[in-house]
Amino acid sequence: MKSTNKMKIEFDSNTNNIGFARVSVAAFLTQLNPTLEEVADVKTAVSEAVTNAVIHGYDKLAGYIELTSVLEEDTITITIVDKGKGIEDVNKAMEPLFTTKSENEHSGMGFMFMQAFMDEVDVKSLVGEGTTVIMKKRIGCERI
């Protein structure tokens, strides 16, 4: 049987909670004995996904963000769910440098970083219902 371990947190859509979210996942991830680089990669990806939920999903409105992390053997799967406004065109949103908020100097690199730092990134979104981001990363594949 595969050994699995799961954690789930829910928090307000608030810029103060972006740091909390990434540090929580990083702490949970230590069980897989990751390198510092792997921890940094996962933290960045979580930060990008949660920032998207706060800034784009809820866009100043109140709401909850649900974050689940599952460790299964040497892989972490992180799911971040918001019930915000959703994304009209996911493919367009994932294009590097595409941003709907250039006036606030958002770089349009969020999804690009998630894809660069994680092995798999899957985005499901429905306008008016919210967005779910599922990211996977295998830990320790660079070690022997």
Partner: peptide, 13 residues
């Protein structure tokens, strides 16, 4: 110790 794409946006701006 930590910077994400928002930080990149600040420097780019």
């Amino acid at each position: 110790n930590f910077m994400d794409s928002t930080g990149i946006g600040v420097i780019m701006g």
